[in-house]
Write a protein that binds this DNA or RNA. Structure first.
Length: 957
RNA sequence: GCCCGAGUGGCGGAAUGGCAGACGCGACGGACUCAAAAUCCGUUGUCUGAAAGGGCGUGCGGGUUCGACUCCCGCCUCGGGCACCA
């Protein structure tokens, strides 16, 4: 433990002043103030209602809800990369408190889920024990950073009092359906009423009978088809290496698991699925109303992938085949159809002679996983089914093929192939000698680029033509597109024709898939669901929540070979026989039910945690409505509401940020929250990266033992290669906050992290550079405090005008920088001010109080501990946390004389000292009288003189 | 392949149409010290010059402008996202 703030330190050989600001003095100051803040409960933010309410303190203050993406409590604790965002939000929050805001800032732990569980499996320790000790360690590390968090609001997703509400929200979703007419989620009982009253009919696919003629069980099954979370037998991503299925979002482009990098296989399983696609339009459209980085919005737009076009039905011997196309205008050019090998009509369509070929192709397609399909050099393969379908506009019989380039998971799993207008279809048609008919005449340039003569005969074309072009060969008795040039006009013409003749209609399709919500693991929220004898799912009654995760001694998932795609998963909870069956009265007498043995995915807990921060101790509601409205409600009509500032890494662009938006919108529809979006403003911080070093055998060597010599990197006398990237245990380049606290102190560490670049930029970590911020604080300390006696040497003498002006320029700049999260430039400005102050102190021996006070205030958001210590020494009564941030005096932002650059032909030739209020005429006269200007002009008369008032003059010759 | 983002001293970066390199690190010189560390003072884009000064300079090539790191067009390199999405 370092010395406390009031105990002098003994420097080596007694040569270091006793109260020099260094790591050991900082340690004492920091601990002192961290204890003080805790005892004083300095950073508790009052609510408007409920147990955390303090209306008197709330009154008259604007609220500000700042949020960090909460961490996984991993076993290795924090490295210096983790706190970057936490420091930034802390600086911002502290700054905003000093501008009068009621700031809510807290941090919790995302403690369920695969990473924690995988770690537990590796260490062999129960995830709960492991998780709790990891959280304790992270809390300790974060406390030493001096974050101004409201400790009462720190939750963990694994707390029973938290996941009780995660289960409750799940049941809200389970008990809802999406009303396409009203475009919102509603309670499922309202759908039942609509069926009963006849306002709504089951679709013919669901039942041929009238609602009232259906049995209770049949009715129940139809209702279940509408629920926002439902059981579906569908193709899932099965990852035997993790013993669980995964969401699409958790599978990499290589067809492997995001976590652990195990192979993932497609197979059918009955799983809980969240109907996120019902919200596709709103998730897409509401992006426009959010203050998010454009790049993240774009990633979400691409992920949702809305395409507008048409559904078209083709008649065949096996019944209608429906396709989706974005280009219905090209229907006249559809010369064949392609079905996905998994399409349900393939068996019925295939002719006898093609049966064995089709079966063989389907078998080989099944064996390929997505990964292998990709490495396939993209050569198109396929097989003729022997069957034909009728092109509705041409009336022609066109062949039906199957090919694996058509995906079952998108559109209808079948396409109309227009080889002249689609590159993939063109390639396929060329490979299998299928007819290609031009339906648009490409423009002349297109032929020129391909160096061929313009011709509507596709035999000469090297590729398909995609784009606008005059339509040809596109007419029948009832409709003609020929001669038209506008694609949108052609599309709307053909769409109305299709609709009129009942061949199809305009339609929208999304890339977004519904969210697979079951995991065959242990460390997650149990589903609040039980099954009856008919295998129908029922909600566990609210008063029986939470459904507690049973304690297991063997919590490991079933061990499977990562390549074993055949074995069925056996969730760990299925082994807890005494927990598995339960006696309940769900309104029709006591019966025995079987519990759901899957658990929720890692994302469940993080889908709503920001709401629980608001009202963490509420036992009757997940959040009090008034409290939610205060912190997250819309600010004006049309405002989405939500967190005022959400800071985190870009890696959550489509997973967490899409899922939590979805849950939030359901809660909004059901009237549980007043905000339409969870996170109004999003900011992506960059990453702290690091250098790693490998020896000649490719082994990483400890980065902190590598020395640089003349541009070469040497470890134990041998040259090693440097690489740049993440910090990681295996890369042996981890630097921990603890090392920084010990070596420099938390304030220096905070300043360093904020000073190295703009918040959204990634930057390398360089421990060597940290000392710069240490020196800055040391000089500031020395300017205010006598290093030998620990006494303040601040005077009441007025500051000279120039120093006072420097102060106000600094205040002005720092204010703007803080407001815009530009902490790096704010720090530069503070250093400049301090450097100016140092010159004054060197000359006069003391710091004017009128400088010392605002300087300390401005430092306080960035390095709060040293600022508190100085504040105490300055003897100001108001706590620094709640003083008003200094405000610049506009009169002092203007100097009496300014320096004006003189350009000749845009090149700098001279600088003039001029009065600040110089007129253009005076400036011109002054410049023309300047010796350097006279020399540079060499007697020539300027053709033009450009003057930017009070800033610049440029002579054009 | 398609879509984003970024390229500035030895290093992190600043300047978003108007003095390129603020601020920090490092390096070099000096003070203090028996010495070192720490601290303090100074120099530091590059070429040229004894100096004053001058030439060049923001990935590359063009353009707009009195004036471009900044805006436009075309390339190169790096980073990220998506990837047979009909």
């Amino acid at each position: 433990m370092g010395s406390t703030a009031d105990t002098p330190q003994t420097g080596r050989g007694g040569s270091i002043p006793a109260y020099r600001y260094n790591a050991s003095l900082a340690a004492g100051i920091e601990q002192k103030w961290q204890d003080h803040w805790e005892q004083d409960r300095t950073f508790e933010a009052p609510n408007t209602a409920g147990p955390l309410a303090d209306p008197a303190v709330v009154a008259g203050r604007e609220k500000l809800f700042i949020l960090d993406m909460f961490p996984y409590p991993s076993g290795s604790g924090l490295h210096v990369g983790h706190p970057l965002g936490y420091i930034a939000t802390d600086v911002f929050g502290r700054f905003k408190r000093m501008t009068g805001k009621n700031v809510l800032h807290a941090i919790g732990y995302d403690s369920f889920g695969l990473p924690a569980e995988q770690h537990a499996i590796v260490t062999g320790i129960h995830p709960r024990i492991n998780t709790e000790s990891n959280i304790a360690n992270m809390r300790r590390q974060l406390r030493r950073l001096g974050l101004a968090h409201d400790q009462r609001r720190s939750i963990s997703t694994t707390d029973e009092s938290y996941y009780r509400w995660t289960q409750w929200i799940f049941l809200q979703i389970f008990n809802s359906w999406y009303d396409d007419r009203l475009k919102k989620a509603r309670n499922i009982t309202e759908l039942e009423k609509e069926f009963e009253s006849g306002m709504r009919q089951p679709t013919t696919a669901q039942s041929a009978k009238k609602w009232k003629d259906l049995s209770k069980l049949e009715q129940r099954k139809i209702l279940d088809d509408y629920r926002l979370v439902y059981l579906a037998n569908a193709p899932v991503n099965w990852c035997p290496g993790l013993g669980t299925i995964l969401a699409n979002e958790e599978v990499t482009a290589e067809g492997r698991s995001d976590i652990g990098n195990y192979p993932v296989f497609k197979r059918n399983m009955r799983q809980w699925t969240m109907r996120i696609t019902a919200y596709a339009d709103r998730l897409l459209d509401d992006l426009d109303r959010l203050d998010w980085p454009e790049s993240i919005k774009l990633m979400q737009r691409n992920w949702i992938g809305r395409s507008t076009g048409a559904r078209v039905r083709f008649a065949s011997a096996a019944g209608e085949i429906e396709v989706f196309t974005t280009r219905p205008d090209t229907l006249f050019g559809a010369t064949f159809m392609v079905l996905s090998p998994e399409h349900q009509l393939v068996d019925a369509l295939t002719t006898k002679s093609q049966q064995s070929a089709v079966e063989k192709y389907r078998e080989s397609a099944r064996k390929l996983n997505d990964n292998e399909r990709q490495n396939d050099d993209r050569k198109k393969t396929g097989v003729d089914t022997g069957a034909t379908a009728t092109n509705p506009v041409t009336g022609q019989q066109i062949p039906i093929w199957i090919a694996d380039y058509v995906l079952m998971g998108y559109g209808t799993g079948a396409i109309m192939a227009v080889p002249s207008g689609d590159e993939r279809d063109f390639e396929f048609a060329r490979a299998y000698k299928l007819p290609i008919v031009a339906i648009q005449m490409p423009p002349g340039e297109w032929f020129a680029i391909h160096d061929i003569a313009p011709s509507p005969d596709c035999a000469s074309w090297p590729s398909a033509y995609v784009g606008e072009g005059r339509y040809i060969n596109s007419s029948n008795k009832n409709i003609s597109l020929d001669g038209k040039r506008s694609m949108s006009q052609a599309i709307s013409l053909i769409n109305s024709w299709l609709e009129k003749n009942d061949f199809g209609e305009s339609a929208i399709t999304y890339k977004l898939r519904n969210w697979l919500f079951s995991r065959q693991r242990y460390w997650g929220e149990p589903f609040p669901i039980v099954y009856d004898q008919d295998d129908m799912p029922h909600a566990v009654p609210d008063k029986l929540l939470p459904v507690k995760l049973p304690e297991l001694t063997d919590f490991k998932p079933q061990a499977l070979d990562p390549n074993d795609e055949k074995t069925d998963p056996l969730p760990p909870l299925a082994r807890v026989t005494e927990w598995l069956s339960v006696e309940l009265d769900l309104g029709d007498g006591k019966k025995t039910y079987r519990r759901e043995v899957n658990v929720m995915p890692q994302w469940a807990g993080s889908c709503w945690y920001e709401l629980r921060y608001l009202d963490p101790t509420n036992t009757v509601q997940f959040v009090d409505a008034e409290v939610e409205r205060y912190w997250m409600g819309p600010k004006t009509a049309g405002h989405t509401g939500g967190v005022d500032l959400y800071v985190g890494g870009v890696e959550h662009a489509v997973l967490h940020l899409l899922y939590s938006r979805f849950w939030h919108k359901v809660l909004f529809d059901l009237g549980h929250v007043s905000s339409e979006e969870p996170f109004h403003k999003l900011f992506n911080q960059g990453y702290i990266q690091a250098f790693a070093y490998r020896d000649s055998r490719g082994q990483t060597v400890p980065a902190n033992e590598v020395v640089e010599q003349n541009g070469d990197f040497i470890f134990e006398g041998e040259s090693v290669a440097r690489e740049y990237g993440k910090m990681g245990k295996s890369l042996k380049n981890i630097v921990t906050p603890d090392e920084m606290y010990d070596e420099f102190g938390a304030d220096t560490f905070r300043l360093y992290e904020m000073s190295t670049g703009p918040l959204d930029a990634s930057r390398p970590w360089n421990t060597r550079d940290v000392v710069g911020m240490q020196r800055f604080l040391q000089r500031t300390w020395r300017n205010l405090v006598d290093e030998e006696t620990n006494k303040l040497h601040v005077s009441n003498d007025p500051a000279p005008l120039e120093l006072r002006r420097a102060l106000h320029r600094c205040i002005h700049g720092v204010h703007q920088d803080m407001e815009n999260l530009r902490f790096n430039t704010a720090i530069s400005k503070l250093i400049e001010l301090n450097n100016a102050l140092t010159m004054h102190v060197n000359a006069t021996g003391s710091t004017p109080r009128e400088i010392a006070v605002p300087l300390t205030q401005m430092l306080s958001p960035l390095c709060p501990h040293i600022a508190e210590e100085l504040w105490q020494k300055l003897g100001v009564e108001t706590p620094i946390t709640y003083t008003t941030f200094p405000v610049a005096d506009p009169k002092l932002l203007i100097s009496e004389t300014i320096e004006i650059p003189v350009q000749i032909n845009g090149k700098l030739r001279a600088r003039l000292a001029a009065p600040a209020d110089i007129s253009d005429d005076e400036l011109r006269a002054l410049a023309l009288a300047d010796a350097k200007v006279i020399a540079a002009l060499a007697g020539a008369t300027p053709a033009k003189i450009v003057i930017v008032p009070k800033r610049l003059i440029n002579f054009v010759l």
